[in-house]
Amino acid sequence: MKYIVLFTLLVSLNAKAQDLKKLKSNSFWVESNHIEPFDFDTFLLKSFKGSRLELICSDNPFLGNKHSYIKYTNIYGIHVKDFLFKDEFQCHSFKKFINSVFPAINENNSVKIQFNKNDGSVEKILLPDLDIYENGDSYYKDVNNKEMANI
């Protein structure tokens, strides 16, 4: 009986420790539903909850920066941190993608970005399933595959 009580107490303490780990996570996600070109060859990404992200890739001719980063502004409008990309190619390919499809980014086609709070880096970027070479054949069809617009 004594061992059953000790085992139950141990399982209970382990579950509470796991809950604390979840609360003190090292990373967080931001989901952007609106992207627009911004100042000096950069892009502004706005989230559902009000935070703003500014994408600034390396070798920007106007800013002269050496590293690619995302400038994070919280929901209160305060610039909190610049999250660095681990490699420059990731930023430039992301910029090329959103430059091609930014008008189609909305609630149904959102961009999700994972940031690491400890080392200040961009961990993951999840892109929506949009074709940058879209010519209108599949974009202008409704549920029954009838043409909605003839362009």
Rank of each mutant, 00 (worst) to 15 (best):
K16R: 08
K16C: 13
A17Q: 15
Q18P: 04
D19C: 10
D19G: 09
L20R: 14
L20C: 13
L20H: 11
L20W: 09
K21W: 05
K21V: 15
K21T: 15
K22P: 08
K24F: 08
S25D: 15
S27M: 12
S27T: 13
W29T: 15
V30A: 14
E31G: 10
S32K: 15
N33G: 11
I35M: 11
I35G: 09
E36Q: 12
E36N: 05
E36W: 10
P37I: 07
D39W: 10
F40D: 01
F40H: 15
D41I: 09
F43S: 05
F43T: 12
L44K: 15
L45C: 02
S47D: 11
S47A: 12
F48Y: 04
F48D: 01
K49R: 08
K49L: 07
G50P: 07
S51P: 11
R52V: 08
R52P: 00
L53S: 02
L53K: 02
L53C: 02
E54Y: 01
L55W: 03
L55F: 04
I56V: 12
I56P: 09
C57L: 03
C57N: 01
S58D: 07
D59H: 14
N60T: 06
P61R: 01
F62D: 02
F62T: 05
L63P: 00
L63I: 00
G64F: 04
G64D: 00
G64E: 02
G64R: 05
N65L: 01
N65K: 00
K66S: 05
Y69C: 06
K71T: 13
T73P: 01
N74I: 00
I75D: 08
Y76M: 13
I78K: 13
H79A: 13
V80C: 09
V80A: 10
V80L: 07
D82V: 08
D82K: 15
F83G: 00
L84K: 15
L84H: 15
L84N: 09
K86L: 11
K86T: 12
K86P: 09
K86E: 06
E88I: 05
F89L: 12
Q90L: 06
Q90S: 12
C91N: 02
H92T: 14
S93A: 04
F94L: 14
K95V: 02
K96I: 07
K96A: 11
I98R: 03
I98M: 11
N99A: 15
N99D: 10
V101D: 12
F102Q: 06
F102E: 04
F102T: 04
P103W: 02
N106P: 05
N108C: 06
N109F: 05
S110Q: 10
V111A: 08
V111S: 10
V111K: 03
Q114T: 05
F115N: 02
N116H: 00
K117Y: 00
N118R: 00
N118Y: 00
D119E: 01
D119M: 01
G120W: 05
S121L: 08
S121D: 01
E123V: 09
K124E: 07
K124A: 07
K124H: 07
K124Q: 09
I125Q: 03
L126G: 02
L127S: 05
D129K: 08
L130N: 10
I132H: 05
Y133I: 01
E134D: 14
N135P: 05
N135A: 08
D137V: 05
D137C: 10
S138H: 12
S138F: 13
Y139H: 10
